[in-house]
């Protein structure tokens, strides 16, 4: 069971993603992940929840009224440094992508509209990579 936090100021996007994650398998090779999804249309509310419980992966919109995706991820990383970070955005220029990668070490930057299969594969991949990183850390 992997806990996923999704943030987008558009509730319909959240519903669609929730449905998607419930109805499509999340596989990476032979690995299959069961996802437990929590969604928030407010980054602030999402951060409050993140302080209460653990998340393995966070998927966030980039342009939101309260704070942008980068600012949100920066705060989120302070709470859960090991969670995988993915940005899902309808509009982003090269600057935004660069910031997402260099400032908050985002593993993927996906465009909207997204492709369902690709999104699920990206999540599975990020989760696998995270597991491997954690295993490596424990060995040290």
């Amino acid at each position: 069971m992997n806990r996923i936090l999704i943030v987008d100021d558009e509730p319909a996007v959240l519903s669609a993603l929730r449905r998607l994650m419930k109805s499509l398998p999340c596989r990476y090779g032979k690995l299959e992940y069961t996802l437990e999804v929590e969604t928030f249309d407010s980054p602030t509310a999402a951060l409050a929840r993140a302080r209460e419980v653990d998340f393995d992966l966070v998927l966030t919109d980039y342009r939101m009224p309260e704070m942008d995706g980068i600012a949100f991820l920066r705060e989120f990383r302070a709470i859960h440094p090991d969670a995988a970070r993915i940005v899902l955005s309808g509009f982003a220029d090269l600057n935004d992508v660069t910031r997402a990668i260099t400032e908050v070490d985002t593993s993927r930057f996906l465009p909207k509209p997204w492709n369902d299969g690709l999104l699920m594969a990206t999540i599975a991949e990020a989760l696998t990579f995270r597991t491997l990183q954690q295993a490596a850390k424990e060995k040290q």
Binding site: V13, A16, L20, G90, K112, P113, W114, D116
Partner: peptide, 9 residues
């Protein structure tokens, strides 16, 4: 792109 995203999905 937002509505296209969720409608497509």
């Amino acid at each position: 792109n937002n509505p296209i995203g969720f409608v497509t999905s």
